[in-house]
């Protein structure tokens, strides 16, 4: 990430607003006796948010992507399916842990995707880690190659053959699957 010297005033104001709202939410119940939002906390919040904004205003919001709003809505629509997959993953792991014979057959699989952007790769890696029976080991960002540890044959086939999750993530970030 290159840090440009030019100061974008609108960007800095947006970062300052986000940081200051976060500060107010976090400091609201530090002292419940003096009432919420005592003047000490408000002034200290202005100073701290200002210093952090001056130092690192170009790290929070980057202007790389396009169609950010549509991607955000698609990501919100993706989250409930992901939560359901997490529930299934936990019951799967609980079954394998508590079964007396431990039905596990671990293996390492490798596959390529067409995803390239950082956010898409991060989302897919976290989703793979949280869904049934698979954990991401390594990513090659240039080729979109994933190295995945699977706990049995069935979750590995679900990831390799079915490809539901890869298609969904590609749909969210508008990249071709």
């Amino acid at each position: 990430m290159t840090r440009s010297k030019e100061h974008n005033v609108g960007l800095m104001l947006a970062v300052f607003a986000v940081l200051y709202i976060f500060w107010l939410l976090m400091s609201a119940c530090i002292n419940p006796l003096n009432g919420h939002f005592s003047p000490v906390h408000i002034i200290a919040g202005i100073i701290c948010a200002g210093v952090v904004t001056l130092l690192s205003h170009d790290l929070l919001i980057t202007k790389e992507g396009e169609m950010t709003l549509a991607k955000t809505f698609r990501l919100i629509a993706y989250v409930p399916w992901e939560l359901w997959q997490i529930f299934l993953a936990n019951f799967d792991v609980a079954y394998r842990v508590l079964h007396p014979k431990m039905p596990i057959d671990p293996r390492i699989i490798e596959f390529d995707t067409s995803l390239r952007s950082d956010f898409a790769l991060t989302t897919l890696a976290n989703s793979i880690t949280l869904t049934p029976g698979t954990i991401t080991i390594d990513i090659d960002p240039g080729k979109g190659r994933f190295l995945v540890h699977a706990i049995a044959k069935k979750p590995a086939d679900a990831l390799l053959v079915d490809k539901t999750m890869i298609n969904k993530v590609a749909h969210v970030y508008m990249e071709e699957a």
């Binding site: 936990n90 842990v97 954990i135």
Partner: peptide
């Protein structure tokens, strides 16, 4: 669980949820 990778399967999912 028998080895390091499978142990992380148990902790990474069950602890999060």
């Amino acid at each position: 669980f028998p080895d390091f990778y499978t142990r992380l399967h148990a902790t990474g999912k069950c602890d999060t949820l």
